[in-house]
Amino acid sequence: MNTLVQELKQLIIDSLDLEDIGPDDIDPQAPLFGAGLGLDSIDALELGVAIQKRFHIKLDNDPAATRQHFQSVTSLARFIESKAK
């Protein structure tokens, strides 16, 4: 789980071309969208694509579920682990 969290943090930074921010600056519990990292709807699409590519998983078509999975780095990690099983 911990390595997955680290990997996700780096994936977010790389795929979204985030500046001035390192993996340690991302709080795994903090919201990715809105206040926390301040990602936007285009970031959500980009991140979704990056995750599908990296982990070879399919995202649900259910917006409510997706929103929940993309809540924070921790929730994303949990979601990816559940898909991998």
Partner: peptide, 8 residues
């Protein structure tokens, strides 16, 4: 959010 500058 999409209107907020990404790079500073």
């Amino acid at each position: 959010p999409v209107m907020i500058p990404k790079k500073w």
